[in-house]
Design a protein around this nucleic acid. Sequence first.
DNA 1: TTTT
DNA 2: TTTT
Lengths: 161, 161, 161, 161
Amino acid sequence: MAGSVNKVILVGNLGRDPEVRRMTSGEPIVNLSVATSESWRDKASGERKEKTEWHRVVIFNENLAKVAEQYLRKGSKIYLEGQLATRKWTDKDGQEKYSTEVVLNRFRGELVLLDGRGEGAGGGQSFGGGSSYGGGQGRVSGGSDAPASFDRGELDDEIPF
Amino acid sequence: MAGSVNKVILVGNLGRDPEVRRMTSGEPIVNLSVATSESWRDKASGERKEKTEWHRVVIFNENLAKVAEQYLRKGSKIYLEGQLATRKWTDKDGQEKYSTEVVLNRFRGELVLLDGRGEGAGGGQSFGGGSSYGGGQGRVSGGSDAPASFDRGELDDEIPF
Amino acid sequence: MAGSVNKVILVGNLGRDPEVRRMTSGEPIVNLSVATSESWRDKASGERKEKTEWHRVVIFNENLAKVAEQYLRKGSKIYLEGQLATRKWTDKDGQEKYSTEVVLNRFRGELVLLDGRGEGAGGGQSFGGGSSYGGGQGRVSGGSDAPASFDRGELDDEIPF
Amino acid sequence: MAGSVNKVILVGNLGRDPEVRRMTSGEPIVNLSVATSESWRDKASGERKEKTEWHRVVIFNENLAKVAEQYLRKGSKIYLEGQLATRKWTDKDGQEKYSTEVVLNRFRGELVLLDGRGEGAGGGQSFGGGSSYGGGQGRVSGGSDAPASFDRGELDDEIPF
DNA sequence: TTTT
DNA sequence: TTTT
């Protein structure tokens, strides 16, 4: 096809800790549940309303998976870029189901930590300590070496430009 | 919630003509089926592979609905921005289903025609000629008044900035 | 021209308080100075390097101007969307200069507060009577509620969709 | 700094052929001049107005540079992603000048051909024929396919996901 | 179901 | 299930 673009940009919070698994080949699969919400005042009633949308995010990228595993926790606020993918699956009753996910894979995807303050993370836990994240677009944060942003690129890399 | 962002950006082609309906209140509901695809050469086999993703796009915005109805056709190439929304519904067998859609509503959404060459459109059909689209961000195209881009703003409006 | 898109997305921090002025017509002009930075480890030297980019952001949109004036301070972290515009000006020595800015105007632009914790803001200062961040992608606000996210749309509006 | 994002998305047309140079190290420097425009009808006068913005785009990425050199021509319509960078330089009169550019470098940047119909390209000129760039959002390649989309990744690569 |  |  003449060129196409499939891009999702989310800024939201994790509803729970990342779920990290590995394929038998060793490839990572990290599932994130990300909430975005909007609120508005209803014109008729004058009430404030709020609607939260939950996004299934799947990370297949090795570097981003490591980052998610190490630095993301329930409550973490993140910026992420991925692409939409809908997959078909069959539930236990033989029903065909579809699930649409935001995928960050080897080729596409970006993850930026907007705080390091999910449960368990950021607080007592030490980022850095010889750690060396921060490559690529890495925006490292904090007194330590805790990364605040990553992309799929190699970590510990050369000058960006 | 402290601020969040829920944004989808697609550049792709319509797999079929837009489906246009109206709610009893008169509000428009336009369904688009948009394809994006990627191709790559498989390292192992050396074969070219291609994967097409189909996106359900729903337009609730009056102005964008009009534009879609008038100018989009099967095959049309568009740039669009919307937000992800997943809704639950029950099929005829009483099964719960979820559908994730890219929504362009009153508040959010943008539509840019990247060609005017879908079936039926652009060819013999005249754009413009008294038409007056092009407002808001309108990028009008062609010799005539055919719009190539719109947003949810009022059409025929003042200077953008 | 057949449709075009001109979009900038920044997540960064304000280097100083917003500068707010008004045209004689009453139209607002708010200038923001927004920093984005990236860090990486230099492959050759092994040193960590960091580069900060400063962005000139100009808000011509009444609602966003109010939000910026009320809620943004030096240090505030924001997500924003605008468009690139380069303008020519002549300095005091008669030299022609160009300045490229990220513009949020009546038609385009979005502003999301990612924290309310810039200097002066958020701390002792009270947002809205007891309330009530209105956040989310809240096109929001109202009487006294501090919004956390806005777009150019009317505030206090109906249900988004 | 806690994570930041610096992203520009443009859909526009090249005002002239790409200018391709190489650093002594062999690194590519490709300059593009990309136009985006908006038109609108002035409320007061009823006249149609149009404003074109010209963007300086610089590609430091080897793969994207090749693609630009081979497939882009004056008039080509593209989707691109890059980041804002402002650099200082001194003109021949010793005056300090600033230039803001949209940069696609080793780490960041994407380029999608929305048509292959710039001057010289697409028309008589053959894409493919031994060429090996690939279409789609192809990070890609392919026997004889004219490319429609690339990112900074390696070409001829494995399955995306 | 599109497009190349 | 998050966040405010």
